[in-house]
Design a protein around this nucleic acid. Structure first.
Lengths: 213, 213
DNA sequence: TCCCGTCTCACCCCTTCGGGTGAGGTCGGC
DNA sequence: GCCGACCTCACCCGAAGGGGTGAGACGGGA
């Protein structure tokens, strides 16, 4: 049986050594490469066949998430296992969306780490317990990216948009905000125009697609 | 230090014995109860303080998902760890939504099981590798519950609903389906009426809220 | 066979909506 | 003080949407 070919990607020399020691102790695993940043990792993936890339999410130059996206693009068969010092919600989601097969925190116990590498190599996934909770929460209540797909809107318009997204009619909005219907119509018009939306129906779609609902 | 109080819920005697043996071998864990169905489990939770409920998802009478929902309702501090023979996508999601803190398959290795019990007792979560993949997929591409929040709609109406959800106007729909606008309006009216929706805006909301978009 | 559900279409009516235009008031920065 | 952004409101218009009603055609099940 051939060993699982693993590359380590971490800017910390000490940690790379530690990981190499831990993983090499497992007879199923062979650490074949060892680089310090995402850019180099991508180069290695381009030139060699790898089973698992164990990557720190925070690194100089090309960060872990970007590197992951590129790696899964050029080598779909190669699994990426994210490694981080803490379970940051946003990074977890970003990493998963980028195509990572797992997400572990660095306080993971050696045996678990080795097992996780084997798991992802086998095509399954691995989540650290602390991370799993985060991910489960996301499944429970659809994720909401609070970014501004509301660019250029004034505060009042954002408020109007929120009501539009909830399906309120103009007359309801004017009741909600104690405004004249004409004013509401003005705001709605401004919102649609600024966001380039055809009508309130598309405003609702826009809201959901951008996680504002 | 007090031990983690665990209840086993499984209709298979043999498995309960096995679980009890495995878990009792861990000094952090104490198996305090042992029942054969969801209804009994709920009763026990009502009367006793438990840390973790280890529950089979498939059981006669009250199934695991329903029991989980009830347990987390009446005892939010009690964690439910789902146990199943295979990782069924739908059940995983149902269990998570019901409030389960983890989901393991029965082929889990004893040490991992014990650790998982401790993990969820500590407030984190546990996912079997095979299950983790399923859950990650759900995070990657927004989950879609293909269940019928479309109850009572005819095939044609479902089709119309799909277009409504995408923000198509009546005239666009009539072009899409090669129908007269009057016909489209008839269908739209039927859809809104059957689903109890006020207008197409609410149809869009309905679609997103039920994962049909 | 008849009936019912479905799909199709028509016509009328009224409300809602979106676009256009204009305008008065407030507030903060230059 | 002036200008600009913002909030407020008004009026008009035409298009789109939703409610009501009715009806012809088709097909499958009782």
């Amino acid at each position: 049986m051939t060993k699982i070919r693993v590359m380590l990607v971490d800017d910390q020399e000490l940690l790379r050594v530690a990981l190499r020691t831990v993983l090499s102790a497992d007879e199923r695993i062979e650490v074949t490469h060892d680089v310090t940043n995402g850019g180099d990792a991508i180069e290695v993936v381009r030139r060699h066949r790898l089973d698992v890339v164990l990557m720190d999410i925070r690194m100089p130059r090309v960060d872990g998430v970007a590197a992951t996206a590129e790696i899964v693009r050029i080598a779909p068969a190669t699994r990426v296992l994210m490694l981080t010092t803490f379970d940051d919600d946003e990074l977890v989601v970003a990493a998963i969306r980028a195509g990572a097969s797992g997400y572990l925190t660095k306080d993971v116990r050696p045996a678990v780490l080795a097992q996780a590498v084997c798991d992802v190599a086998a095509g399954t996934s691995a989540l650290a317990p602390g991370v799993a909770a985060t991910v489960l929460d996301l499944v429970r209540q659809a994720p909401m990216r609070r970014t501004a797909a509301l660019d250029g809107l004034t505060p009042r318009e954002v408020e109007i948009f929120g009501l539009l997204a909830r399906g309120r009619s103009n007359s309801e909005i004017c009741a909600d905000l104690v405004l004249s219907e004409n004013t509401v119509k003005s705001h709605v018009k401004a919102v649609l125009q600024k966001l380039g939306l055809r009508d309130r129906v598309h405003a609702v779609i826009h809201a959901y697609e951008n996680g504002l609902a």
